[in-house]
């Protein structure tokens, strides 16, 4: 498996996926801080020029900044999923796995290596994003008031892994990249739809994106037990399902 895992990492490097993700995570971390810092100033400038337009807040605070943190991370996550959506299907279409499978490479190794390498990139990118953001937010506002930092930001990381696991499940049997994207998009929109039911919203995996409330002290970690368990169970099921399905996939 280690040989195929190294092949995957080489592919991510040479296809510039790691470079693109690194730039994106860095850019959006900096952009989040800059947006939080500049938005009140911009509003103030608009208010000065428009009589009757009043704003009650002239300075941003730490919560504006971390609000941006949880908003901005969506874009690198979406780009990450798009970039990785063809990881399996391109190999099916080009038949590049055939020489390796006929040499004894197990399909389980293929699935696990692909998923682990993708998870590694997501994790490393997310750590970079968090690290840069944390440094600047501490520099400008001070992070002293934040509560449950590790759990709050860790929940979004887990949410990313959950979407990746769904991507892996669809990749194990889909023929095209579009089918994979439609599958992941379908699950996401299904969750967004169910979110309209107030009773169910806090139990959905999407609840794990609500780390800001936890940081502010509006909620406690135990509020997220149900979505946490659902996500862990579905990651395990998606992985097991993906491994089972790829065994019979026509390469």
């Amino acid at each position: 498996m280690s040989a195929f895992f190294r092949k995957e990492m080489t592919e991510h490097m040479r296809r510039k996926r790691i470079f693109v993700m690194g730039i994106l995570f860095l850019l959006f971390a900096v952009l989040g801080v800059v947006t939080a810092k500049l938005t009140p100033l911009l509003l103030e400038m608009v208010a000065d020029q428009m009589p009757g337009f009043a704003i009650d807040k002239t300075e941003s605070d730490i919560w504006d900044a971390w609000g941006q943190y949880f908003k901005n991370i969506d874009i690198p996550l979406i780009v990450f999923l798009i970039l990785w959506s063809g990881s399996f299907t391109t190999e099916y279409q080009k038949h590049t796995l055939i020489p390796l499978v006929t040499k004894g490479l197990s399909r389980t190794s293929i699935f696990v290596s692909k998923m682990l390498s993708a998870a590694l990139v997501w994790t490393a990118g997310y750590i970079l994003y968090f690290g840069v953001f944390y440094f600047y937010s501490d520099f400008y506002w001070g992070n002293g008031d934040l509560k449950h930092v590790a759990i709050s930001v860790g929940m979004y990381w887990l949410y990313g892994l959950w979407l990746l696991a769904i991507l892996g499940l669809f990749s194990s049997f889909a023929e095209t990249t579009m089918q994979v994207l439609l599958g992941v998009g379908g699950v996401f929109f299904l969750c967004s739809f169910v979110e309209f039911v107030p009773k169910l919203a806090p139990k959905l995996p999407t609840a794990l994106t609500g780390g800001l409330g936890l940081m502010q002290g509006g909620s406690v970690p135990s509020d997220f037990t149900v979505p946490f368990v659902i996500v862990i169970v579905s990651i395990v099921l998606c992985t097991a399902g993906g491994i089972a399905l790829i065994q019979k996939k026509q390469l």
Partner: peptide
């Protein structure tokens, strides 16, 4: 699927495709 007999086999596909990078 994962046939064990493949450890004894070498295969050249009709249109071999490799990792071009």
């Amino acid at each position: 699927g994962n046939t064990k007999t493949n450890r004894m086999v070498g295969y050249l596909p009709d249109v071999p495709e490799f990792y071009d990078y």
